[in-house]
């Protein structure tokens, strides 16, 4: 997996806010969320927060969303939110 992918910084910032004290430089795209102490319900909350940040209605996406299990999965969801707003 490449070292950087679109929206990585946004996702890193969100996770840093969620988990105080996390060194965000360590968060490579293929980092599994559970290794950060993010369980599936917390992951869903991150998706809700990202939808609010991007200004999209989560319900337009929900049928095709799977609960993300990695940083890259979260970045992918942000990319989908963004492509819907342009």
């Amino acid at each position: 997996m490449p070292d950087t992918i679109p929206f990585l910084d946004d996702v890193r910032a969100l996770i840093a806010a969620e988990l105080s004290g996390t060194d965000i430089a360590e968060l490579a795209p293929d980092t599994k969320l559970h290794t950060l102490g993010i369980d599936s319900l917390t992951a869903v909350n991150l998706v809700v927060a990202l939808s609010a940040q991007t200004g999209v209605d989560l319900e337009d996406f929900i049928d095709d969303l799977e609960t993300p299990d990695s940083i890259a999965g979260l970045c992918d969801i942000v990319a989908r939110f963004h492509s819907a707003t342009v």
Partner: peptide, 11 residues
């Protein structure tokens, strides 16, 4: 079988 978001569950 969607993510567990309270708002979506209530809808």
């Amino acid at each position: 079988n969607r993510p567990a978001v309270g708002m979506i569950m209530r809808r």
